[in-house]
Design a protein around this nucleic acid. Structure first.
Lengths: 240, 240
DNA sequence: GGGAAACTTTGATCTGGATCAAAGCGCGGT
DNA sequence: ACCGCGCTTTGATCCAGATCAAAGTTTCCC
């Protein structure tokens, strides 16, 4: 709020960073202004369309990314084509696997997105020199682990209807909070992607969505846009 | 191997640590001998029987643990009793959730086990003072995340038979390596626990085990003891 | 060392979600 | 504005795995 004060702090940081969604995120939020400047010089802001692959499964990537806008899906594919989405990442998350170059999963823009691409070895060096960054990435990794384990419960033990409700809850929670109990948002995923996230088929996802619609728990406008009049109601469907 | 050399390194470290499985693990392996001594003074070696709960879901724990021997299962339970095992930990893994006191899961000894219990705030202090420890725990967290995501694929997209094969492969991989291709091991989990890990019922687990036995991929001796004559054969069942 | 409880296997049947099939719907391109 | 393709919904049928039921093993407690 205080212009003079923020001026002092922001002096010398890259112009592109000043209004960046991820400026105070996991990586950039803990760097010194010198480091931020250094990183800014070597990073590349990139717009990617929905469907664009950022990291390929099985490939070695020499980059990490920060999500500035949009949603990224993390995906695993079996040789026979079966597919499972194993995580969603939202701005301002960090995308990449420190310490292991070869990726065991693909990262793909689920919506149109903007990402900030960092050279791997620069970040690696900063991690080893900056305990605050190490700690921050450790923290994100642990949060992702919590989320992954919560999702394992969903995949292993919830019914199709509970699964779909869980997904809507997850998206609603990450979309900006709306009024006290009601929420509206655009789904960042197609029905096929939802199916791959929930371990279901397209048809089952569609049927369960219309079930939720008919029981007035959600309204569906234009396939992608969802209104949840009462989040508590939705959460009651999840059964935990 | 060199007694004099190892003597120099090991001088002053706690007696109990000298032959400990976890001595060179994620935590103790990166501490200075001074820190190890300090930690040794404040830690408690404890034998726990199979089934003993180490951390309760929803509780606040003021301890972390190291597994010295045995297997620990990480478990989530829904209010209606449905249950999902979300991870297995083996010696010398670290058990606990840095940065968040309240546990979202329970940790329970799956077999008789020995653990080394550390006071939470001592470890927290060491983490903040020791980048090597931070890095080591970060690394374990990322490995657990990789494993969790791999298991999400198993839960969401594999058939019952593939799931059981995946579990046997997981256990076989963590049991000590045997001859080139063949392996034998004791299952650390009951059929009910296997079901809760795979998102199946006891009956389905049992049926798939006898299927694998009848197709000569495994031999079952005394329910818990499994022989895999050819690990490649088993891995072919997993379909990825 | 006997007996009971707990665990495991096996069998019969049922069902939630998959698969197969065919319309709706909406959007982008010409 | 129209056409065509891709996405979504809806319907009919099927089947992998759940549920219900019962018998066989093992462990271990007295």
């Amino acid at each position: 709020m205080d212009v003079a004060h923020s001026g002092v702090l922001e002096v010398g940081i890259p112009v592109a960073c000043r209004s960046c969604q991820a400026r105070h995120g996991v990586v950039c939020g803990v760097l010194s202004s010198g480091q931020l400047k250094d990183l800014g010089r070597h990073s590349l802001r990139r717009k990617v369309d929905a469907g664009c692959e950022i990291i390929a499964q099985g490939s070695e990537s020499s980059f990490y990314s920060n999500i500035m806008r949009g949603v990224v899906k993390l995906c695993k594919v079996m040789p026979d084509g079966r597919q499972q989405i194993v995580g969603l990442q939202f701005a301002p998350d960090f995308v990449g696997r420190p310490y292991v170059r070869e990726s065991t999963l693909s990262a793909e823009a689920a919506t149109d997105a903007e990402i900030c691409v960092f050279p791997r070895n620069l970040i690696d060096r900063m991690i080893s020199e900056t305990p605050e960054l190490q700690r921050s990435l450790h923290d994100q990794a642990l949060k992702e682990l919590d989320a992954a384990r919560e999702w394992m419960l969903t995949l292993g033990r919830r019914t199709a209807e509970e699964k779909v409700a869980s997904l809507l809850d997850l998206i609603a929670t990450h979309a900006e909070p709306q009024t006290a109990t009601s929420t509206a948002f655009d789904l960042p995923l197609s029905r096929a992607e939802i199916a791959d996230f929930l371990g279901l088929t397209i048809e089952t996802v569609s049927r369960q969505m219309t079930r939720l619609r008919k029981s007035r728990i959600i309204r569906i406008e234009n396939f992608r846009h969802i209104v949840v009049p009462d989040m508590d109601e939705l959460e009651r469907m999840i059964g935990a």
